[in-house]
Amino acid sequence: MIVAERKPVGEILKMISDAKRVLILGCRGCVSVCSAGGEREVEILASMLKVGRKKEGKPIEIIEASLVRQCDKEYIDSIDQWDGQFDAILSMACGVGVNFIANLRPMVNVLPAVNTSFFGGSSEQGVWTEQCAGCGDCVLHLTGGLCPVARCAKSLMNGPCGGSQDGVCEIHKDVPCIWQSVYEKMNGLGRQQEMLELAPIRDWRSAGHGGPRTAVRDDLTV
C-alpha cells in the first residue's frame, strides 16, 4: 500500500489560514489502512484544527467526509455534493488523490494534509516499512524476492557496497544491508550461483526518470 503520515498541524493551519470553511476529505484506501487519512484520522484532524483555530480566535467550520478512493474519477464526482460549502479541501489521501481532485476540479482549492512517504507494508502493528519503489522493471526474480532498488540505500544492482558490515548498512545501525539478506536468501534456496551473473547497466526510464509514467490496458478502454 501507499504509506503516508499526517503533516504537522502547524503546517496545515498555515495552509488554511484564509479559509473559513474546510472540507476534510479522507480516503478509505491505502491511507486508511496505514492510519494516516481514513475516517478516524479525519475526525482527529478536524478536532485538532477546531482547537487550533479557536486558540487563534478564528473558529472554523469543518465538513468531515471520506471517499472510497480518491484515485478514481467516479468517486471524485461525489465531492460535488458539497459545492459552495467550503473554501478549501484538505485531502488526507496520498498525493495521487490530491492530484486527481486538482485535475478534475480546476476551480477547487485542494491542499495536502499528509506527506506521502512510500510503498510499504506493516511489519508489525503500528510500524510500516518501505518495500518497493515502483521502478517499473522488477528484478525480484533475481534477488530472492527482496528489493535492492527500494531497500538498498544506493539502489545497487550487483551486490553490496564496501560499507556493508556484519549484515548492517553503513547509513544506519538499524538498517539491514539488503544485499546481505539477498545473499542469505539465495543461499538458503540453493540459488547462490545465480548471483555471479552480472546485472547490466539499468535503464531507469521505467522508474520515472523519463518523465511521468502511464499504464494503458487496451482491453479495458472502451
Binding site: 478516524r40 482527529i44 478536532s47 482547537v51
Partner: peptide, 11 residues
Amino acid sequence: LKVSSLLKAFE
C-alpha cells in the same frame, strides 16, 4: 477510548 473523543473534550 478514541483520540478524537479526548480531543473533543478540549474542543
